[in-house]
Simulated scan of single mutants.
Amino acid sequence: MSVLMWIAGAAALGAGAIGWMRAEARGYRVREEEVVSERIPHSFDGFRILFITDIHRRQLSEVKLLSNLSSVDCVLLGGDITERGVPLQRMRHNMSVLVRIAPVYAVLGNHDLNAGKDAVRKVLRESGVTLLNDKTVTLKRSNELMVLSGVRQPASRKHPYTRFRGNAAEDQYHIILVHDPIWVKDKDAVHGDLVLAGHTHGGQIVLPVAGAVRLTRFYKKFKSGWYTLPRKAGETKHSSRMLISRGFGTSHIPLRLQCPAEYHVITLRKKP
């Protein structure tokens, strides 16, 4: 094989790999999840949540999103809704798509703060999105209640999280929305039944042998997927569940490898 043929082959292989990574980054992969608990109120049996996080620079296509989506009861946004340099009009468009689907509740992520938290909050408010900054709201169905709390993102890694853990009674099913799963680090209890987080991108670029090389030790353990956590201090069998999403967008480079973009539809099921 001549040098030119080898170069041409390598270039074709590289172009194919880049195309694959772009496709993973631009996809609309919806993951259907189910959470079963005896603590879920009867009237919320079958309640469906669209959970999407880390949109970053992407612009939502309403056609593509709805083509993979049956009806949902609420939308939860897990932060990094935008980032620095993204036109606010793109964020307005994305929020307009989501609020037409169902009521939207959100927390901010570190990139939202860097983009200008006041401007981001203004767009959310004007779009009809409820921002949960260390705030709890109640969702009501047939005179039964479920509690949703959102955790405020610290201004930087140097600032700790506040002591907010949501305002839910012991007998209320409690969902906690937080951008960064490091919030659970060193906690003896999370005081919630379901924790939804993002931030990690699942590593975004996951190599066949080395894995997600850009993740630090904590995030290698809490990378993506489902985890069990103590809902109350001293539990011998953990009763809280946490989902860490790989996220919908990308950071730094618009590519993914072995870690496709995703969003989730979570159905709550009352355990008999």
Rank of each mutant, 00 (worst) to 15 (best):
L139R: 03
S156G: 14
S224I: 04
G211S: 12
T228N: 12
S156F: 08
Y227C: 11
H174F: 04
P154Q: 10
V151C: 11
H159D: 14
L196I: 13
G225F: 13
E144C: 10
Q153A: 12
V206Q: 13
E126A: 13
D193A: 02
D134W: 08
A212Q: 08
V129C: 11
V129W: 08
R157E: 15
R163K: 05
Y161R: 10
G128A: 06
V137P: 02
R152C: 10
E170S: 02
K140I: 12
A168D: 02
A210P: 03
L194A: 14
H159K: 11
N143M: 10
K221D: 06
V137I: 07
G198M: 14
W183M: 04
D180R: 15
L139H: 05
A168L: 02
Y173R: 09
G198I: 15
E126V: 09
Q172Y: 00
T136C: 03
K223N: 15
K187Q: 13
K140T: 11
L124I: 04
D188Y: 02
L196N: 13
L177C: 13
D171W: 03
H159A: 14
I182D: 13
K158D: 11
Q172V: 01
V129S: 12
V209E: 08
R165I: 00
S142Q: 12
R141L: 07
H174S: 10
L131P: 11
G202A: 15
P181Y: 05
D171Y: 03
G166V: 00
V190C: 04
A168S: 06
R152H: 05
V206W: 12
L196D: 03
I175Q: 08
K187I: 07
P181V: 08
V123G: 14
K135M: 04
N133S: 09
V195M: 13
A212P: 09
R217C: 07
A210F: 14
R152I: 00
M146H: 09
Q172N: 02
Y173C: 09
V184T: 10
P160D: 12
R217F: 07
L139A: 06
L124W: 11
G203R: 11
L215V: 04
G203C: 07
N167R: 09
R141D: 00
H199I: 11
V137H: 03
D134T: 01
A210R: 08
S224W: 15
F164G: 09
T162S: 14
V129E: 07
H179D: 12
M146S: 08
N133D: 09
V195E: 03
S156T: 05
V195R: 06
D193K: 06
T136V: 00
P160I: 03
D188S: 12
H159C: 08
L131D: 03
G166D: 01
T138P: 00
V123R: 10
P181Q: 07
G192F: 00
R157D: 15
N167G: 02
V151Q: 13
K187V: 09
V178L: 12
T136D: 02
W183E: 01
F222Q: 04
T216Q: 10
V206F: 11
I205T: 05
A155V: 03
N167D: 01
L124D: 14
K223H: 15
Q172E: 01
A189F: 01
L196Y: 09
P181E: 06
E144R: 12
